[in-house]
Design a protein around this nucleic acid. Structure first.
Lengths: 114, 114
DNA sequence: CGATATGCTACATATTCCGTAGCAACGGGC
DNA sequence: GCCCGTTGCTACGGAATATGTAGCATATCG
């Protein structure tokens, strides 16, 4: 485990210059694999490698970056024993994202690209 | 690339090789500006240029690409008079995404990066 | 005819992502 | 001790995307 997540401040988030929370959030979630990661962690902790497999073997570089971002955002935490998992806050996010599943089903039957 | 939206199907969506609707959807939404676009269209139609301003002046290249994807996905349509707006399906998506706003507020007070 | 606004595109530059490989640290079995 | 498998994580070069600026064709208004 290299870095205590608190390390670098760096420019808040890409895009969204306003700082409005919703923009920061949309910006954070609108990155490759971020939503997917949260989704895969929805009901069990996963090791970094298990997570990678579930994410179509996305490259560890990005996954690691996303995981760091998500940890800085307080949505994901790393448990020495079990691996990565959603924090309480992360689980709240999951709650609000879950309905997407039902929508996706409806969507795939009406307008989704194949 | 001037394409009538119905033109080519082209490789379904990046990543998500499974084809499960939720993956396709997460993949679609997990792209730069996609979520933001849907958000900005949440309750009024916008011309491409107005949309651009609202999206921190993102480059027209990506926005145009995203808009095309969203149109192919049946979530956004272009009205000659009023500009871009959500379809019925797009509005349903918006419904399921709206709770993010409230979450973002809570989040910004507990764990968000500044 | 301008003048203005629309949707959309070209192209070169920056940024980001991918894929492969590999590291250091921890544990278990022997 | 030693080997072996697993963990989290990183380096690096090439591929894919995004950015920024400019501009096109069309349409609408005066």
């Amino acid at each position: 485990m290299a870095k205590p997540v608190s390390g670098k401040p760096r420019r808040a988030v890409r895009g969204s210059t306003t700082g409005r929370p919703i923009m920061v959030l949309l910006d954070l979630l609108g990155r490759r694999w971020t939503l997917r990661i949260v989704w895969e962690l929805r009901d069990h902790a996963l090791t970094s490698r298990a997570l990678r497999e579930l994410c179509d073997d996305a490259s560890p570089t990005v996954l690691q970056a996303r995981l760091t971002e998500l940890r800085q955002a307080g949505l994901v935490e790393l448990q020495p024993a079990s691996g990565y998992r959603l924090t309480k806050l992360g689980r709240e996010l999951m709650e609000t994202v879950l309905p997407l599943h039902r929508f996706a089903e409806r969507w795939s039957k009406s307008g989704a690209p194949e």
